[in-house]
Design a protein around this nucleic acid. Structure first.
Ligand SMILES: [Zn+2]
Ligand SMILES: [Zn+2]
Ligand SMILES: [Zn+2]
Ligand SMILES: [Zn+2]
Lengths: 143, 143
DNA sequence: ATGGACCCTGGAGTTACTACAGGGTCAAGA
DNA sequence: TCTTGACCCTGTAGTAACTCCAGGGTCCAT
């Protein structure tokens, strides 16, 4: 492969992306289809490296692919106002903060649950199972 | 529907589960197939209410369905030692703590990113886009 | 010329649901 | 009695973002 031209495997190594993922991004239009060699191998250049690196960075920040697409669009139109970019980042920040709060509540519940078990007993006496089981008697639920 | 017998919709309301989800749980063997009425409607009793409530509680704690299945198995065999239950809970606790740590790192990065944008500019000068873009020059990546 | 590392396409599998489409059932009101 | 609307049935396909596989081709070195 010529200088400045990368095979799909080389591009993957360079960007920390699996080969299948690169082909997937091409199929859904996140990455443009590259040139092909005589043997029908994909052949990537600098623009592809730049674009895929950008995509991976944004993905690693937890943005969905739809947002990646929006950011690529914005990055390609330098004259648009950049408030939209800011809004995307703030939206993701909120999302992440919401998820953290959810998981912290979950962690507290699991922690309480974990302390219920005095190990060594049988399932029949397990407080964890008990705590998870509904105390449901006849007539409690069904009118 | 007779006393003590619930339609799928009533069971859903009682347990906070969508009708489709209940049918899905039946298909994958999480819930046993209930009796049917003359008109071929599913007809649920107390055991179903108890079991589905248990499933939902475990799911709400973030356990995957595979673990739900394991817990149901354990709950059905009261003579097994309960260390296994404890292990499942501790495993999930670790998992949740790992996710929280990941998200906190993400939040910090997003927070830094959000402060880069002095709003009102054009995308061309946006520091967010710049921060996400690789500084990739010719010869930098390709041997 | 032959072996192994790499590449190709197309399709299926993953998780835990959710959303139809195209029908049947049931109870209540006019 | 008829009809209307809420509910139920099955079966299939769609979601997010990949990941894996089968069954083949290409390339390079020995
Ligand atoms: Zn226990
Ligand atoms: Zn009941
Ligand atoms: Zn900006
Ligand atoms: Zn390069």
């Amino acid at each position: 492969m010529a200088k400045q031209e990368l095979s799909i495997g080389a591009l993957g190594k360079l960007t920390g992306t699996k080969v299948e993922t690169i082909r997937f991004y091409e199929k859904i239009g996140i990455l443009p289809a590259p040139a092909r060699t005589a043997g029908n191998y994909r052949s990537y250049g600098h623009d592809h490296v730049r674009r895929l690196t950008f995509v991976r960075r944004v993905r690693d920040l937890g943005f969905p692919l739809e947002t990646v697409r929006a950011m690529l669009d914005l990055a390609d139109q330098p004259d648009r106002p950049c408030g939209e970019v800011d809004a995307l980042v703030l939206g993701q920040l909120n999302e992440v903060e919401r998820k953290i709060a959810d998981l912290e509540r979950l962690r507290d519940e699991l922690d309480r649950l974990a302390h219920q078990c005095r190990r060594g007993g049988r399932v029949a006496e397990c407080r964890i199972i008990e705590a998870l089981s509904p105390h449901h008697e006849d007539g409690h639920c069904c009118p």
